[in-house]
Amino acid sequence: MKRIQLIDIAHGRSGDKGNKANIGIIAKAPEYFPLLVKHVTADRVKAHFTEFCHGAVERFELPNLMALNFLLHETLDGGGTVSLRTDAQGKTLCAALLRMYIPLTI
């Protein structure tokens, strides 16, 4: 099966909300949005971030922006000021998500 890396079809931004990380990804073209909806599920995102995310992953759709927003609970090592990590606020987690490969078919 042909696969594609998310970095080639999406861009986005991530940040912190307490100990939750928010990762928003946006399709680079309208034809890519259905691929994101189909393959970048909350379960896949949870599995992708197994090392970081110790809680639930919620997914929200923004078809008007061709975007998906993920809320990753218990993911920032206690939150921005408590975390011992360099990336305490999850600023690079969007890039980490864009490492994911998905099938190129609906």
Binding site: R13, D16, N22, G24, I26, L65
Partner: peptide, 9 residues
Amino acid sequence: TEQLIYEIG
């Protein structure tokens, strides 16, 4: 759009 989806739930 990148800013719109920043730090929202």
